[in-house]
Amino acid sequence: MLLAWTWMRASYQYPLSAAMMTVASFVVNALDIAAIWVIFAHVERLGGFSLPEVMLLYGTAGLSFGLADLLFGNVDRLSGHIRSGSFDTVLIRPVSPFVQVAVDRFSVQRFGRVLQAAVVLALAVPQLDLTASRAWMVPVMIVCGFAIFVSVFTLGAALQFLLTDAPEVANAFTYGGNQLTQYPLSIYGGELVRGVTFVLPLAFVNWQPALFVLDRDDPLGLPHWLRFASPLAALLLGLVAAAAWRAGIRRYRSTGS
């Protein structure tokens, strides 16, 4: 916590730049939703889902991802630490390396994404007339989605122990996962959806639980109980990610002198 605070202070040494970065972060994320707005200027439904329904998916995915990114998104800098040798320094301190890498150069700008997703979600929910018997799933899915994205970030970081020169591979899964879950999975091909259901369980970030919230049939006809399986998926992925991270540390080969 204190490390994070110190980084915030350091970044405000240049207030103009920090302000512009926060604006940029707001705008970047506003552009995502602008794209959805442009799409719905042309169609009533996308993949069988209305604008408020897509906004629910967008908002929950954005909130889960945004929180994970805010707190742990920095772990994608691991390869940089490994190449520069500063990961050695991290390892000689009595705090979990994962936490240390996550808070290093912590930046509040990422909060822009969380806020923007929260606004979208707040706009979407009143338009959907949800009953309490279904709406309770919304906070559950945000928490589970958060846990899943944290695991994905961790897996991406663990991958960087292997692919130190190619950290961008992890982006395909982290940022790619966010892009994927912003839209109803019904627009994607069947194989892709099965892949993100049973292999890398991104479908449990919001899609499966949202089918319950919106009381919709699964376009692929997957079993009904899957829509309650988000906590299980989050737990399993979390265990895999933790094991991968530990394996990565043991495999770590310090560079140079």
């Binding site: 799409i39 996308l46 692919l163 020169d165 190619a166 950290p167 961008e168 591979v169 982006n171 395909a172 790619g176 892009q179 994927l180 839209y183 627009i187 994607y188 091909g189 892709l192």
Partner: peptide, 19 residues
Amino acid sequence: AALAGAFTNTVFGILRAYV
């Protein structure tokens, strides 16, 4: 790094194409 970029570009290309 370039190959990793190609991989990521491909994944995003596929996701965007479906939209």
